[in-house]
Simulated assay, not measured.
Amino acid sequence: MPRRYPPFLIRLTHGLAAGLLLGGVSAARAQDVFFSQPFATRLHTNPAFAGLVDDYGATLSYRNQLPTLAGSFVSTQLAGDLRLDVPGQHHALGLLLNQDHSGGVGYTRFEAGALYAYHTRLTERLALSGGLRASYGRQRVGYDNFVFGDQILEDGRVVGPSAEALDFPPVNYLSLGTGAVLYTERGWLSLAGQHLNQPNLGFRQQSQLPLLLSVSGGYKFFVVKPGPGVATREVSYTPVAAYTRQGGSQRVETGLYVTASPVTLGAVYRNIPALSRVETQHVLAVVAGVQAGGLRIGYSYDVGLSRLSADLGGAHELTLALRAFDRLENAYRRLKRRVYPTAPCPAF
């Protein structure tokens, strides 16, 4: 009589296989989560964005990737930044808390990062921001949902406990990153490198977190440009592009955001080149956001355009941001040349 395995093991096997195929993660390599609203989660992308969009702000992000599978990969992130009110307006600080969790395998990774950015004006219209990030991380695997072979009887019943040695202690690590943003009131170019020290995340064997390199940029075209003072009416469209590489995985993204305040709509096409024998994956992220005073709410959904990515169920992402930006005070500082252009990237 063939041995029957509980549905959990089958779902777990499928979930792990799908994650490896779509994310391009090898047995000895870890990967970072990526967000479909990179401008709402801009501190995750590049520490140099600290203090560039708001005087201060806080953003809560939630991403549920591959929701149709058991044990979907869920990420929750809290980010905050503050431009220091000191002469010259050069300095900004940031805080980034991120937790990744996969319910099926009991995997959890938590990171807490401190960020610093320095802003300077190169010319009357061109400005530069450079940033640093240092993060402490802790990765662990829980065994509550695991079922091992010695717990399964011939009739399919599960008994316990298992005789397996569950000796995988949590892994602690330090990650260092840096980045720069060159920008004007209409366009920007971002370059960032994360995990410069390539920390080891392995439980029993070496498993490095590879260096993550990202380049992105965009240009905003105004149909109606916000005026000085308290005028906030804006109609614009912003084409964007990005390239990211981490270990053997890479992504190319192109997209367009359209803003007619207070609403922003966007569509970003993501191309994930072929990895091993897996065909190239194509994903379209559809983004919608609304702003009311200091509150921003954004939602995005990843639509799989390839067979595998469509079968895996895409991803839901929700962001909630509270921000403060004193336009009257900022206009005064600008006249006195004591402040820098506001980065023109979308808010979602």
Rank of each mutant, 00 (worst) to 15 (best):
L43I: 10
N46K: 02
L93S: 02
A27R: 11
L96I: 11
L84F: 09
S26W: 09
P87R: 08
N98H: 10
F35W: 09
S102V: 14
Y56A: 07
G57P: 03
H91A: 04
G23F: 00
F73C: 05
L16W: 04
Q77N: 11
N64A: 13
T41W: 00
Y56W: 12
A70F: 15
L97E: 08
A30C: 11
G71S: 09
I10R: 10
L43H: 00
H90Q: 05
H91Q: 06
Q31F: 13
L69Y: 05
S26D: 15
L82H: 03
A28K: 14
V86D: 10
T45S: 11
A17M: 13
T59F: 02
L66T: 07
T68L: 13
F34A: 07
D55H: 03
D54M: 04
L20V: 09
D100Y: 10
G88K: 00
G23Y: 01
P38C: 12
A30W: 03
Q77V: 11
R11S: 12
A30P: 08
V74I: 15
N46T: 10
A18P: 00
L95E: 05
L60T: 01
D55F: 01
A28M: 15
H44G: 08
Q37S: 06
Q65T: 09
V74W: 05
F73L: 11
Y62A: 13
S26I: 08
P38L: 07
Q89R: 05
S61R: 01
A28G: 14
G19E: 03
Y62W: 15
D54C: 01
D85I: 11
T59Y: 01
A30N: 13
P67A: 06
I10Q: 13
A30H: 08
Y62T: 11
A92E: 00
Y56H: 08
G19V: 05
G24I: 00
R29Y: 07
G23N: 00
H90L: 04
Q99I: 14
T68V: 15
T68W: 11
G88V: 02
Q77E: 12
H90T: 00
R63G: 02
F35T: 01
N64K: 07
H90M: 00
F49M: 05
S102D: 12
G71A: 08
D32I: 09
R29S: 13
I10S: 09
F34V: 14
S61E: 05
N46M: 07
F49T: 04
G19P: 01
H14Y: 14
S72L: 08
L78C: 06
H91W: 07
A28T: 14
T13Y: 13
D81M: 03
